[in-house]
Amino acid sequence: MSTPTLSRARKTGVKSIDGTRASLAWLTVPALVFFVAFAIIPLGGVIVLSFMHWDGIGDISWAGFANWASVLSDPLTGGSLWTTVKVILISCAIQIPISLLLGVFTAGFQRYRAVLSVLFFVPILLSSAAVALTFTALLDPNFGLSGAIPIEALKQDWLGNPDLALAVVVFVLSWQHIPFHVLVYQGGVRQIPQSLYEAASIDGANVVQQFFTITVPQLKYTFITSTTLMVVGTLTYFDLIFVLTGGGPGHATTVLPLFMYLEGFRANDMGGASVLGVILAVFGLGLALLIQRLGGKNRQASQLEGA
């Protein structure tokens, strides 16, 4: 995500060097002030608070490594981390292929596809709270889906059974977020030069071969952007799970950010919650860097050679 932006920035900058350019830096001040005050300083603050005792109301006092020791020895920490990893992996495994295929599908200019796209994007408009309440009602064992369709398999206590609840969470997360990633892939597909497909057709490649030899490789950076947003996004999906299951049943759907909230604002242990906040930030940054690394560093190399 970062490399192309920065390298392009440097290029355009160099193209028109003159003495006055550096003075533009002051234009970033307002954005910087807000970003530093409400994102960068709190990022430092979360580290500081992880070494403090605080119940959220009273005084803050030094705790040393006490919070770290108690959080790291709490089996729920590892449990919520594992739940988070499961949610990320499964929801990526669902969202990436569907988003890719729907992105390719909606990139087509056929009229019916344009009409379908309009409807595909509707979930984007709903808040997580609205989506959660929708599925709570829909999955009600008596008055939802199973009341309408007489299939025994649908008569489940979807949100009461720990294994099913996690599956439901992943499904609903995917339902809510696939539309956005479809948009991203759609844009990526439309930027692929048509000449590549024409050349492939002349060489006798069929559509499936074209998909795997042209579309998929050409979407590499779209894939990196989309997946980064997907993974980091999953680490922030707190609200949907909070309203849908509250982390339950038991702790079956307690992901890391939800555990952090519960620890801080329900158990009134802000120090412990800050430890979880640090873990969350490091985990997210690590995953984002990993995806960038896997995607390859050399993004300046042209994908369009010969196009």
């Binding site: 970062s2 950010p257 997210g284």
Partner: peptide, 21 residues
């Protein structure tokens, strides 16, 4: 680069200091 960092880090990790502030 600093702004890009904001995209890579789940900023929700900062809710407790923000609540404090």
């Amino acid at each position: 680069r600093l702004f890009l960092l904001g995209l890579a880090i789940p900023l929700q990790a900062t809710i407790i200091p923000i609540y404090w502030g």
